[in-house]
Design a protein around this nucleic acid. Structure first.
Lengths: 343, 343
DNA sequence: TTGTAGGCGTTATCAC
DNA sequence: GTGATAACGCCTACAA
C-alpha cells in the first residue's frame, strides 16, 4: 500500500461511504456509531493505511499527547534509565515522549520551547538546572513542567530526585566507620545544586563525627572523569593527602581511581573511594565501585506521573519528591592505609 | 508578557493594523513589504511575543523542518557524539532535531513513524539495524531516511558509518605485529551487521598472516560489558587460552578486562586487549584501552548532510559512506606473555 | 445514528 | 504594497 501521500480522513470516508464525521467518531467514540458502519470504517482504514494526522488533530484540539524531555547532555550515563522510567509511565497513560537535546545551549532550549507554544507538546520534563528560556520575557505561557535529575534554580517547578543529603551521609558514614578521618570531597560545584547538596551531606557527616572540616579537602569539579583525575594531581602537590576520596559522582570517582592507579596505587589498599549514582559501568571499574544508587527508573516514573497529574489537575500533588538512595557496597572501600599515618 | 494562550498571527495583525497576510509576508518575505509596515509588524511581534505556530505552519505547508532521530538505545556511549554531529549539521541548515527512543520495541518505532506521516518530521535518521516498521505494509509513504551506526538490513537506505573491515584490520594487525598468534574475537553477532563485519576483518587479518582460524576462539556477545566478562569465563573453562582478546567494542573490552583482573591478571602483561569505538571512558579504563576510534561527530555530520540532500534533491549522493577509523594506541596491548607458551 | 459546516493558525493565490 | 480568502486535516456542535 504505497501512496505518494498519506491517506486522509476523507479517503477513508469515501471508501467507507460515510461522512468524515462518522469516521472521526468511529475512531474516537466507537460506541456512538452503529456496529455495521464501524465495521465499514475499520475496513476502509485498513485498506488505506490511514493514520490520523497528529498535527491537524492537535491544531484542532489545542493540545497534544506528547511530552517533551529537554536534556542538556544526553550522554550522561544517568540519562537513559531515567528516560525509560519517563517513557513507560507516559506510554501507560497514552502519551508519547520526544527528546530535545540542547547541548547546554540556551538558544536551543528556546527553540524547543516553541514546541510547547505550538501545542506540539503538552508538557516538559526538564533535565537542566536552569530554565531553558529567559525566565519572564517573551514567552506566551509557562509550560507545565517538572524537573528531574537537577532541581531548577528559580523555583516554582516541581522536582523529583533523590535525597542527596541522605545519600551523601551514607557514603561519608561508611568511610568514617571504616576508620577514615581524612576524607576529601571531590566535585564540589556552585552551579549544580544536586552536587552542592552532596557536599553538604559530606559536611554533615563530618560534623556528626566531630571531625573538623578541612577546606583544602574539598575540591571543585564538574562531574567529569577528567576533573577527578585533576583533583588527584592537585592533592598530591600538597603535603596532606586524604586516606579516602568521596566523589560527587561515579564518573569523578573513575577519574580519581584512574589517577591513583596511574601513580601506582591500588584500591582499596592504599586509598578508599566512593562514588554517587551507581552508573552502569560502576561495577566494571577497577576495583568495582562502592557507591550510592539512584533509583533512576523510579525517578523517571514518578516525575512523569507528577507531570501527568499537573496536566489533568492543573496542580501538582507535591512540589518536591525525594527518594531515598541506597548504599551499594562493592570493593573500593577499606580501612585507611597505615602508610599515611606519619605524614 | 504572560498570556494564558499564545499570541496568533491575528493578534499581531490587529496591533500592527495590517492584515494577517502582511504579517506573514513581513516574516517570510520581508523584502515584499514596505519598510514602514515591516517596522510596525516587528513591534507588534515584540509586544505580543508572537511565535509562529509550527503546527499550523506545517499543516499548511505539508512539510516541517524537523528531523526525527530514531534510536533503540539512547544509553549507548556512541550515541551522544553522533547526535551532536547530526544536530549541528541540521541546525546549520535550518532544521531542528528531535529524538525518539524505541527501547528496541517495534511498536514504539511504529508510533514515531506517525510523526513523519503527520508532517511533523521531514526525514528520519535511523540508529537501528531493522526498519522500525513492517517493511511493506500499511505505511503511506516511505520516509526519507539515512541509517547511521548500524546499516539497515533490508537495503535501500543510505548508510553512513565506518569501514569496519579496515578498522578491525588495524586492531588485529597490531596484535599480530606484537607477536600474538592465539587471538580471541569477543562479541560476534548475527544480528548486528557492524559487529559481524568486524569479525570478518579479524578473519581477514588472521588469513593475511597465515594464522589458521580457530573457531573456538570466536565467541558471541551482544556488545555489553557483561557479555565480555562472560566470554572470559567461558574461555577459562577450556584448555586453550588466547594471549590476546580482540573485542567487538569498548564495552565488551571493559568486561573482558574486568573479568581478567578479577582472576588476578594484569594487562597488558598477562593478556592484551583491544576495543573498538573509542568511547569516552576508554582512556579511563585499567589499563587505558587501545582501540579503534570512530569519528562519531563526523559520521553524524555526514549522515545529516546526506539526509538533507535527499530531502532537497530527492536522491542521495551516495548509498553508503564509509569513513576510515583510526587506531588509538594506549596501554592495553603488549607482547604475548611467556607463561602461556607451554599450554 | 449520521451528516453539515465552522474553525484551529498558517501560507499562497489572487485581486485591488 | 496590501488585503481577502481558500485550503491544509481534523473534531465537534448542531441539525436532520
Amino acid at each position: 500500500m504505497f501512496h505518494s501521500t498519506p491517506a486522509t480522513i476523507e479517503d477513508v470516508a469515501r471508501i467507507a461511504q460515510v461522512s468524515i464525521a462518522t469516521v472521526s467518531r468511529a475512531i474516537h467514540n466507537p460506541e456512538k456509531v452503529a456496529n455495521s458502519t464501524r465495521l465499514k470504517v475499520n475496513q476502509a482504514i485498513a485498506i488505506t493505511g490511514y493514520t490520523t494526522n497528529a498535527m491537524a488533530r492537535s491544531l484542532r484540539l489545542g493540545r497534544s499527547n506528547m511530552i517533551l524531555v529537554v536534556a542538556p547532555d544526553i550522554g550522561d550515563p544517568n540519562f537513559s534509565s531515567i528516560l525509560i522510567g519517563l517513557e513507560n509511565e507516559a506510554r501507560a497513560h497514552g502519551y508519547g515522549v520526544l527528546i530535545g537535546h540542547t547541548q547546554n545551549d540556551a538558544q536551543r532550549g528556546l527553540e524547543y520551547l516553541k514546541f510547547f507554544d505550538s501545542n506540539q507538546a503538552a508538557g516538559l520534563i526538564l533535565f537542566t538546572g536552569i530554565l531553558p528560556f529567559g525566565h519572564q520575557t517573551m514567552m506566551a505561557r509557562l509550560p507545565p513542567s517538572v524537573a528531574v535529575f537537577e532541581p531548577v534554580f528559580n523555583g516554582g517547578i516541581p522536582y523529583v530526585g533523590v535525597d542527596e543529603h541522605a545519600g551523601a551521609r551514607k557514603a561519608i558514614d561508611l568511610l568514617i566507620t571504616e576508620g577514615h578521618r581524612k576524607i576529601a570531597f571531590i566535585g564540589d560545584s556552585r552551579t549544580r545544586l544536586a552536587y552542592s547538596r552532596r557536599r553538604e551531606g559530606y559536611e554533615q557527616g563530618l560534623a556528626a563525627a566531630r571531625i573538623p572540616l578541612d577546606p583544602r579537602m574539598v575540591l571543585e569539579g564538574d562531574g567529569t572523569s577528567e576533573s577527578g583525575r585533576l583533583a588527584v594531581e592537585q592533592l598530591f602537590m600538597r603535603d596532606t593527602l586524604p586516606t579516602a576520596f568521596m566523589c560527587v559522582n561515579d564518573q569523578t570517582a573513575l577519574g580519581v581511581m584512574t589517577g591513583l592507579a596511574a601513580r601506582g596505587y591500588t584500591m582499596p589498599r592504599d586509598f578508599s573511594v566512593t562514588g554517587f549514582d551507581d552508573v552502569p559501568q560502576a561495577s566494571f571499574m577497577t576495583p568495582p565501585l562502592t557507591t550510592i544508587r539512584q533509583p533512576r527508573t523510579l525517578i523517571g516514573k514518578h516525575a512523569m506521573a507528577l507531570l501527568l497529574e499537573l496536566l489533568s489537575e492543573g496542580q501538582p500533588a507535591e512540589s518536591e519528591l525525594l527518594l531515598v538512595p541506597d548504599l551499594v557496597i562493592r570493593n573500593s572501600v577499606g580501612p585507611p592505609s597505615r602508610q599515611w599515618e606519619t605524614r
